[in-house]
Simulated assay, not measured.
Amino acid sequence: MTIIVGTGAVIRNEDDRVLLVLRRKDPESGKWSIPGGKVDPFETLESAVVREVEEETGLTVEVESLLCTDEIIQPQHDRHLLSLIYKVRYTGGEPVNREPQKHAELRWFKPGELPPESEIAAFSREALRLVAAE
C-alpha cells in the first residue's frame, strides 16, 4: 500500500474570498479544491504548503495555523492519503493558473457561496466547512 502525505492551503484575499482550483486530472477531476499537493522527501509540512501554493497559483503565502487534517483510505487503489490543511496569509502576487495541465481554472469564492459539496474534492470538504462556519 502507498501512503501519501500532502498539504493544502486555505487562502483568503482582502475581500475574505477563498481561492479554489478546478481539478483537471484525477483524482477527482472536475472538482473544486484548495491548492496543495504532496510533501517531498525531507521537506517540512509548512515548507511544502508554501511551495505548492506558489507552484500552482504564483501567490506567496505565510502559514498562520493548522486548520484540520483529512484522511482518505482507498483500498481499491491501494493507497492511503493523509493531508494536513493550513490557514495561510496571502502576502503577494496575483493568482495565475501556473499548472494548466492539472487545473482548468482558479477562482475566488465568498465563504457563503462555495460550490456544492458534491463539486468539492473530498480532502477539501472539511476545511471549507470550517471556513464557511467562521
Rank of each mutant, 00 (worst) to 15 (best):
P27M: 07
E28P: 02
S29G: 12
S29Y: 07
G30Q: 01
K31D: 05
K31S: 07
W32N: 03
I34E: 01
I34M: 00
G37W: 03
K38H: 09
K38A: 10
K38M: 07
V39Q: 04
F42Q: 13
F42K: 09
A48V: 01
V49C: 03
V49R: 01
V50L: 07
V50Q: 06
V50F: 02
R51A: 01
V53W: 02
V53A: 01
E55G: 01
E56N: 00
T57K: 06
L59D: 04
T60M: 02
T60F: 06
V61D: 05
E62L: 02
E62A: 00
E64I: 08
S65E: 08
S65Q: 08
L66P: 10
L67M: 09
C68E: 04
C68T: 11
T69F: 13
D70T: 11
D70L: 03
E71P: 06
E71N: 10
I73N: 13
I73V: 11
I73W: 10
I73G: 01
Q74M: 14
P75I: 02
Q76M: 15
H77E: 15
D78P: 09
R79H: 13
H80V: 09
L81G: 09
L82C: 12
L84Y: 14
L84A: 14
I85F: 07
I85P: 06
R89T: 13
R89Y: 07
Y90S: 06
T91K: 10
G92V: 11
G93E: 13
E94Y: 14
E94V: 15
P95T: 09
V96K: 15
N97C: 10
R98M: 13
R98E: 14
E99F: 13
P100K: 13
E105T: 14
L106W: 09
L106C: 08
R107A: 08
W108V: 08
F109E: 04
F109N: 05
K110W: 12
P111I: 07
P111W: 02
G112W: 11
G112C: 11
E113V: 09
E113P: 09
L114M: 05
L114N: 02
P115M: 09
P115K: 05
P115I: 02
P115F: 07
P116D: 02
E119K: 11
E119M: 12
A121W: 08
A122P: 10
F123V: 15
F123P: 11
F123K: 14
S124G: 00
